[in-house]
Protein backbone atom coordinates (compact mmCIF):
# COMPACT_ATOMS: atom_id res chain seq x y z
CA UNK A 1 0.00 0.00 0.00
CA UNK A 2 1.53 3.29 -1.10
CA UNK A 3 2.02 6.07 1.46
CA UNK A 4 0.98 9.58 0.53
CA UNK A 5 3.52 11.08 2.96
CA UNK A 6 6.48 10.07 0.83
CA UNK A 7 7.92 12.05 -2.09
CA UNK A 8 9.15 8.87 -3.77
CA UNK A 9 8.03 5.37 -2.96
CA UNK A 10 9.04 2.10 -4.58
CA UNK A 11 7.34 -1.08 -3.41
CA UNK A 12 8.78 -4.48 -4.32
CA UNK A 13 9.94 -3.32 -7.75
CA UNK A 14 11.01 -6.02 -10.17
CA UNK A 15 12.43 -5.80 -13.68
CA UNK A 16 13.88 -8.54 -15.85
CA UNK A 17 15.78 -8.26 -19.14
CA UNK A 18 15.64 -11.69 -20.73
CA UNK A 19 17.15 -14.12 -18.26
CA UNK A 20 18.74 -11.36 -16.16
CA UNK A 21 16.80 -10.05 -13.18
CA UNK A 22 18.06 -6.46 -13.04
CA UNK A 23 15.82 -5.42 -10.14
CA UNK A 24 14.72 -8.14 -7.76
CA UNK A 25 12.34 -6.63 -5.24
CA UNK A 26 13.50 -3.10 -4.46
CA UNK A 27 11.51 -1.19 -1.84
CA UNK A 28 12.41 2.25 -0.60
CA UNK A 29 10.75 5.49 0.51
CA UNK A 30 12.15 9.01 0.20
CA UNK A 31 10.76 11.75 2.43
CA UNK A 32 9.91 15.22 1.13
CA UNK A 33 12.97 17.50 1.29
CA UNK A 34 15.34 14.59 1.72
CA UNK A 35 18.52 14.00 -0.30
CA UNK A 36 18.53 10.25 -0.77
CA UNK A 37 21.53 8.43 -2.22
CA UNK A 38 21.76 5.17 -4.10
CA UNK A 39 25.10 3.40 -4.14
CA UNK A 40 25.99 0.14 -5.82
CA UNK A 41 28.31 -1.60 -8.21
CA UNK A 42 27.69 -1.85 -11.96
CA UNK A 43 24.71 -4.08 -12.66
CA UNK A 44 23.27 -3.62 -9.16
CA UNK A 45 20.02 -2.25 -10.61
CA UNK A 46 20.51 1.44 -9.78
CA UNK A 47 19.81 2.91 -13.20
CA UNK A 48 16.92 0.53 -13.94
CA UNK A 49 15.33 1.48 -10.63
CA UNK A 50 15.77 5.17 -11.35
CA UNK A 51 14.32 4.74 -14.84
CA UNK A 52 11.25 3.05 -13.37
CA UNK A 53 10.84 5.87 -10.87
CA UNK A 54 11.20 8.41 -13.71
CA UNK A 55 8.54 6.58 -15.73
CA UNK A 56 10.92 5.61 -18.53
CA UNK A 57 10.44 1.88 -17.87
CA UNK A 58 7.45 0.00 -16.57
CA UNK A 59 8.22 -2.43 -13.77
CA UNK A 60 7.37 -6.10 -14.35
CA UNK A 61 5.95 -6.08 -10.83
CA UNK A 62 5.67 -3.68 -7.91
CA UNK A 63 4.59 -0.07 -7.58
CA UNK A 64 6.20 3.35 -7.98
CA UNK A 65 4.78 6.59 -6.66
CA UNK A 66 6.20 10.10 -7.08
CA UNK A 67 4.35 12.59 -4.87
CA UNK A 68 1.61 9.96 -4.71
CA UNK A 69 1.35 9.67 -8.51
CA UNK A 70 2.15 6.78 -10.82
CA UNK A 71 4.83 8.07 -13.25
CA UNK A 72 3.55 5.82 -16.04
CA UNK A 73 -0.18 6.55 -15.86
CA UNK A 74 -0.05 10.10 -14.45
CA UNK A 75 2.69 11.16 -16.86
CA UNK A 76 1.38 14.68 -17.48
CA UNK A 77 1.26 15.57 -13.78
CA UNK A 78 4.50 13.87 -12.80
CA UNK A 79 6.50 15.55 -15.60
CA UNK A 80 5.55 18.99 -14.24
CA UNK A 81 7.08 18.30 -10.85
CA UNK A 82 9.90 15.89 -11.69
CA UNK A 83 13.34 16.94 -12.96
CA UNK A 84 15.58 14.21 -14.31
CA UNK A 85 19.23 14.10 -15.27
CA UNK A 86 19.86 10.82 -17.03
CA UNK A 87 23.11 8.91 -17.15
CA UNK A 88 22.75 8.12 -20.86
CA UNK A 89 21.00 10.65 -23.03
CA UNK A 90 21.98 13.33 -25.48
CA UNK A 91 20.91 16.81 -26.46
CA UNK A 92 20.60 18.43 -29.87
CA UNK A 93 24.28 18.86 -30.77
CA UNK A 94 24.03 21.93 -32.98
CA UNK A 95 21.99 24.02 -30.53
CA UNK A 96 23.75 26.44 -28.20
CA UNK A 97 23.59 26.44 -24.41
CA UNK A 98 21.03 29.25 -24.27
CA UNK A 99 18.92 27.75 -27.07
CA UNK A 100 18.75 24.42 -25.25
CA UNK A 101 17.83 26.04 -21.94
CA UNK A 102 15.18 28.15 -23.70
CA UNK A 103 13.80 25.04 -25.43
CA UNK A 104 13.48 23.02 -22.23
CA UNK A 105 12.19 26.05 -20.30
CA UNK A 106 9.38 26.43 -22.84
CA UNK A 107 8.06 23.00 -21.85
CA UNK A 108 7.29 24.02 -18.26
CA UNK A 109 4.65 26.26 -16.77
CA UNK A 110 6.97 28.22 -14.45
CA UNK A 111 10.59 27.82 -15.57
CA UNK A 112 13.70 29.31 -14.00
CA UNK A 113 14.89 32.29 -16.13
CA UNK A 114 17.47 31.11 -18.68
CA UNK A 115 20.26 33.51 -17.65
CA UNK A 116 19.84 32.72 -13.95
CA UNK A 117 20.03 28.97 -14.56
CA UNK A 118 23.06 29.20 -16.86
CA UNK A 119 24.86 31.30 -14.26
CA UNK A 120 23.93 28.81 -11.55
CA UNK A 121 25.74 25.98 -13.36
CA UNK A 122 28.68 28.18 -14.37
CA UNK A 123 28.14 28.23 -18.13
CA UNK A 124 27.71 31.97 -18.66
CA UNK A 125 30.79 32.26 -20.87
CA UNK A 126 29.60 29.29 -22.98
CA UNK A 127 26.12 30.68 -23.57
CA UNK A 128 26.56 30.83 -27.35
CA UNK A 129 28.57 27.60 -27.62
CA UNK A 130 26.95 24.64 -29.33
CA UNK A 131 26.35 21.56 -27.16
CA UNK A 132 28.63 19.44 -29.37
CA UNK A 133 31.51 21.87 -28.74
CA UNK A 134 31.23 21.78 -24.93
CA UNK A 135 33.64 19.71 -22.84
CA UNK A 136 32.29 16.60 -21.09
CA UNK A 137 32.04 18.43 -17.79
CA UNK A 138 30.25 21.40 -19.38
CA UNK A 139 27.78 19.04 -21.09
CA UNK A 140 27.16 17.41 -17.71
CA UNK A 141 26.49 20.80 -16.09
CA UNK A 142 24.07 21.74 -18.85
CA UNK A 143 22.30 18.42 -18.44
CA UNK A 144 21.87 19.15 -14.74
CA UNK A 145 20.61 22.66 -15.53
CA UNK A 146 17.92 21.19 -17.77
CA UNK A 147 16.85 18.88 -14.95
CA UNK A 148 16.26 21.95 -12.78
CA UNK A 149 14.72 24.32 -15.34
CA UNK A 150 11.11 23.47 -14.46
CA UNK A 151 11.54 24.18 -10.69
CA UNK A 152 11.00 20.49 -9.88
CA UNK A 153 9.77 19.31 -6.49
CA UNK A 154 11.49 15.99 -7.01
CA UNK A 155 14.86 15.72 -8.73
CA UNK A 156 16.54 12.53 -9.95
CA UNK A 157 20.26 12.87 -10.65
CA UNK A 158 22.00 9.82 -12.11
CA UNK A 159 25.78 10.15 -11.83
CA UNK A 160 25.63 13.80 -10.83
CA UNK A 161 29.29 14.72 -10.88
CA UNK A 162 30.82 12.06 -13.11
CA UNK A 163 33.21 13.83 -15.50
CA UNK A 164 33.36 17.05 -13.50
CA UNK A 165 36.60 18.51 -12.19
CA UNK A 166 36.90 18.99 -8.40
CA UNK A 167 35.90 22.66 -8.52
CA UNK A 168 32.84 22.01 -10.67
CA UNK A 169 31.95 19.09 -8.40
CA UNK A 170 31.96 21.36 -5.36
CA UNK A 171 29.82 23.90 -7.21
CA UNK A 172 27.37 21.17 -8.06
CA UNK A 173 27.25 20.11 -4.43
CA UNK A 174 26.29 23.67 -3.55
CA UNK A 175 23.49 23.46 -6.09
CA UNK A 176 22.21 20.34 -4.35
CA UNK A 177 22.40 22.07 -0.98
CA UNK A 178 20.37 24.94 -2.45
CA UNK A 179 17.82 22.46 -3.74
CA UNK A 180 17.56 20.95 -0.28
CA UNK A 181 17.09 24.43 1.22
CA UNK A 182 14.29 25.10 -1.27
CA UNK A 183 12.46 22.01 -0.03
CA UNK A 184 13.00 19.85 -3.11
CA UNK A 185 13.49 16.10 -2.78
CA UNK A 186 16.61 14.70 -4.43
CA UNK A 187 17.32 11.12 -5.48
CA UNK A 188 21.03 10.90 -6.15
CA UNK A 189 22.69 7.94 -7.84
CA UNK A 190 26.42 8.10 -7.36
CA UNK A 191 29.67 6.17 -7.35
CA UNK A 192 31.39 8.82 -5.24
CA UNK A 193 31.39 7.94 -1.52
CA UNK A 194 32.65 11.40 -0.58
CA UNK A 195 29.74 12.97 -2.43
CA UNK A 196 27.19 10.72 -0.81
CA UNK A 197 28.63 11.39 2.65
CA UNK A 198 28.59 15.14 2.02
CA UNK A 199 25.12 15.43 0.55
CA UNK A 200 22.84 12.53 1.45
CA UNK A 201 20.56 12.27 4.45
CA UNK A 202 20.15 8.54 3.84
CA UNK A 203 21.70 6.01 1.50
CA UNK A 204 20.56 2.70 0.04
CA UNK A 205 23.23 0.18 -0.92
CA UNK A 206 22.16 -1.88 -3.93
CA UNK A 207 23.54 -5.36 -4.53
CA UNK A 208 22.27 -7.67 -7.28
CA UNK A 209 19.01 -5.83 -7.74
CA UNK A 210 18.16 -5.63 -4.05
CA UNK A 211 18.66 -3.19 -1.19
CA UNK A 212 21.44 -4.65 0.92
CA UNK A 213 21.40 -1.84 3.51
CA UNK A 214 19.63 1.47 4.06
CA UNK A 215 20.60 4.07 6.64
CA UNK A 216 22.27 7.44 7.09
CA UNK A 217 25.88 7.54 5.85
CA UNK A 218 27.15 7.60 9.42
CA UNK A 219 24.66 4.92 10.40
CA UNK A 220 25.97 2.61 7.69
CA UNK A 221 29.54 3.30 8.76
CA UNK A 222 28.73 2.59 12.42
CA UNK A 223 26.71 -0.51 11.57
CA UNK A 224 29.65 -1.96 9.65
CA UNK A 225 32.12 -0.96 12.38
CA UNK A 226 34.03 0.87 9.65
CA UNK A 227 35.94 4.13 9.61
CA UNK A 228 34.57 5.35 6.29
CA UNK A 229 31.64 4.82 3.94
CA UNK A 230 34.08 3.14 1.53
CA UNK A 231 34.90 0.52 4.12
CA UNK A 232 31.28 0.21 5.14
CA UNK A 233 30.31 -0.42 1.54
CA UNK A 234 32.78 -3.31 1.30
CA UNK A 235 31.71 -4.72 4.66
CA UNK A 236 27.97 -4.53 3.99
CA UNK A 237 27.93 -5.58 0.35
CA UNK A 238 30.98 -7.84 0.09
CA UNK A 239 32.02 -5.90 -3.00
CA UNK A 240 34.52 -3.20 -3.82
CA UNK A 241 33.00 0.18 -4.77
CA UNK A 242 33.58 1.22 -8.36
CA UNK A 243 36.19 3.74 -9.21
CA UNK A 244 34.89 7.24 -9.66
CA UNK A 245 35.50 8.41 -13.22
Amino acid sequence: MASHDLAIEAIDLRKRYGSTEAVAGISLGVHPGEVFGILGTNGAGKTTTVEMIAGLRRPDAGQVRVLGLDPATDRGKVRQVLGVQLQSSALHGSLTVSELVDLYASLYARPVPTGELIEQVGLTSQVTTRFEKLSGGQQQRLSIALALVGRPRVVILDELTTGLDPRARREMWRTIENLRSSGATVLLVSHAMEEVEALCDRVALFVAGQVAALDTPSGLTDRAGASSLDEAFVALTGQEPEEVL
Binding site: L67, G68, L69, G76, Q80, V81, D102, L103, S106
Partner: peptide
Protein backbone atom coordinates in the same frame (compact mmCIF):
# COMPACT_ATOMS: atom_id res chain seq x y z
CA UNK B 1 0.28 15.41 -1.64
CA UNK B 2 -1.08 15.16 -5.19
CA UNK B 3 -4.05 17.50 -4.92
CA UNK B 4 -2.29 20.65 -6.11
CA UNK B 5 -0.42 19.07 -9.02
CA UNK B 6 -1.92 19.95 -12.37
CA UNK B 7 -1.11 18.22 -15.62
CA UNK B 8 -0.19 21.06 -17.93
CA UNK B 9 0.63 20.49 -21.57
CA UNK B 10 3.31 22.63 -23.19
CA UNK B 11 1.71 25.74 -24.70
CA UNK B 12 2.15 27.72 -27.88
CA UNK B 13 5.55 28.98 -26.73
CA UNK B 14 6.87 25.41 -26.58
CA UNK B 15 5.56 24.60 -30.07
CA UNK B 16 7.11 27.78 -31.46
CA UNK B 17 10.44 27.27 -29.68
CA UNK B 18 10.79 23.65 -30.81
CA UNK B 19 9.98 24.55 -34.43
CA UNK B 20 12.53 27.39 -34.35
CA UNK B 21 15.15 25.09 -32.79
Amino acid sequence: MTTEIQAQRPGLRAWRTLVVC
